[in-house]
């Protein structure tokens, strides 16, 4: 059953087109990475999903129209909009009390249990916490809400690698189960590659690539081609080619691994490799 469906989702800010007709369908129990360069429309898409901005086209989240029914929708959706939105004046104890007061699905004991494993003190104000601690606090709050959908917009931006790793570990181990769905945007693609079940690349307001991680592992191969095999390899229509230390590295989509192995060293590309290829091709296509 889809948790989010969108048909022809458009959003314009003045003359800038932020979303240029997005169609997507996100099923329950998936962890979807919405990946795109800066200004691609990631945040706009998430804001539309959260009912924070009006839009054109059709959008359905958990059976509701987000713009018309935001306050009902967010009973079932948790949202972390980057690290810096927790009010700086609030105390940890106050934010726990407040959410417990206004949110029927918030379980303070869950948040407390998570916070007990951090250095965050209940009487501290948010402004006294480090960036990493604020992200931990926000995650603790979001995870204590028994939501069907968790929306994360660059949740680990500006954090060091230790915090980033902890963040996703907690998310997977303490929060995620098959009944929940997570949508996350990030620039640090490679770090969350193992966390995701699905990938979506967004570029200039459009979804330019969609793939489950299982399919991704079967579809894409990168070959470091022997000098004499270059022409033969190019004949197999790689989706991208780059040079490294005098050798060509070709990226293939859906080509048989056995066939490629004869041409050079085959390895599984990272999401970032495929991302660069897809976005690069899309930009070139636009220029032509």
């Amino acid at each position: 059953m889809p948790v989010i469906t969108a048909h022809g989702l458009r959003k314009r800010f003045g003359n800038t087109v932020a979303l240029d007709g997005i169609d997507l369908r996100i099923e329950e129990g998936r962890i979807v990475g919405l990946i795109g360069p800066n200004g691609a429309g990631k945040t706009t898409a998430l804001h539309a999903i959260m009912g924070l901005i009006p839009y054109e086209g059709e959008l359905n989240v958990l059976g509701r129209d987000p713009w018309q029914e935001r306050d009902q929708l967010v009973r079932d959706v948790s949202f972390i909009a980057d690290v810096a939105v927790l009010p700086r004046w609030i105390r940890v104890s106050q934010v726990l009390d407040y959410i417990a007061g206004v949110h029927a699905r918030f379980d303070p004991s869950k948040a407390e249990a998570f916070l007990a494993r951090t250095a965050i003190r209940r009487e501290s104000r948010v402004k006294e916490l480090s960036k990493g601690m604020i992200a931990q606090l926000h995650l603790a709050l979001a995870m204590a809400i028994d939501a069907r959908l968790l929306v994360l917009d660059e949740p680990t931006l500006g954090l060091d690698i230790l915090f980033r790793k902890q963040f996703y570990d907690s998310l997977l181990n303490d929060y995620f189960d098959g009944g929940r769905t997570i949508v996350v945007t990030t620039n640090q693609v490679d770090e969350i590659q193992d966390v995701l079940t699905d990938l979506m690349f967004i570029h200039r307001g459009r979804i330019v690539f969609e793939c489950s991680m299982e399919a991704f592992d079967a579809r894409f191969w990168e070959v470091k081609v022997h000098a004499e095999g270059t022409a033969a390899a190019r004949a197999l229509k790689p989706i991208h080619e780059r040079q490294a230390l005098g050798r060509s590295i070709l990226l293939f989509d859906g080509t048989d691994r056995e066939q490629l192995a004869k041409l050079g060293d085959v390895r599984r590309p990272s999401v970032a490799d495929v991302f660069l290829a897809v976005i690069g091709n899309d930009s070139e296509g636009a220029r032509k």
């Binding site: 959260m50 306050d71 009902q72 009973r75 959706v77 939105v85 927790l86 700086r88 206004v102």
Partner: peptide, 18 residues
């Protein structure tokens, strides 16, 4: 104030109407 410090995103992520 809540628009200036962007905390409006946080408040709006909670089920409480405008």
């Amino acid at each position: 104030g809540e628009r200036r410090d962007r905390s409006i995103f946080f408040w709006k992520s909670l089920p409480i109407s405008d």
